[in-house]
């Protein structure tokens, strides 16, 4: 490995909303797409397993809907919003490491929002970055 080769610059798209548990949600109309943040994938390291919900499952904001496991740790997934699961990313069953290579575009599930007002309670990209900075003491 050359120096700096893995010195990835983490990025947090400005049109996403974030949770303090390190999920992101991108909303298009009444449907939200959910994944985990670049910070989360980097902290976990090599991801080997994603436990997905089923289509039709009802999610509640702030509640656990699945988990993601790396070689060294397991981390619960918390739903950013309430709603009904309309799609899950089946690709992650065979290739969970896709989250490591691009956390921002590798989605985990799509959810039909039952209360769009919940979005205002989530963090903006800038707020999320500030939150991480505080968490890590940098």
């Amino acid at each position: 490995m050359k120096d700096g080769e893995n010195a990835k610059i983490m990025s947090y798209p400005a049109d996403y909303k974030y949770t303090k548990e390190h999920e992101w949600i991108q909303v298009d109309g009444a449907v939200g797409t959910v994944g985990i943040t670049d910070y989360a994938q980097n902290s976990l390291g090599d991801i080997v397993f994603v436990e997905l919900p089923k289509i039709g499952d009802v999610l509640e904001s702030g509640k656990i809907f699945g988990s993601v496991e790396s070689v060294k740790a397991v981390s619960d997934l918390f739903s950013p919003v309430s709603g009904t699961v309309t799609a899950v990313n089946e690709e992650l069953v065979g290739a969970p490491e896709k989250i490591n290579s691009d956390a921002n575009t590798t989605w985990i599930l799509k959810v039909e929002l039952s209360d769009a007002a919940q979005l205002s309670g989530l963090l903006s990209a800038a707020d999320y970055e500030a939150f991480i900075a505080e968490e890590t003491g940098h």
Binding site: M1, D3, G4, E5, N6, A7, G45, D46, S70, V71, K72, N100
Partner: peptide, 23 residues
Amino acid sequence: RTHKAKMVDFGGWDMPVEYSGLI
């Protein structure tokens, strides 16, 4: 730190847990 290692507290020691990736 130059190798961008992820550092952890291991029994009171500031040690690298991984560099490029555990696997």
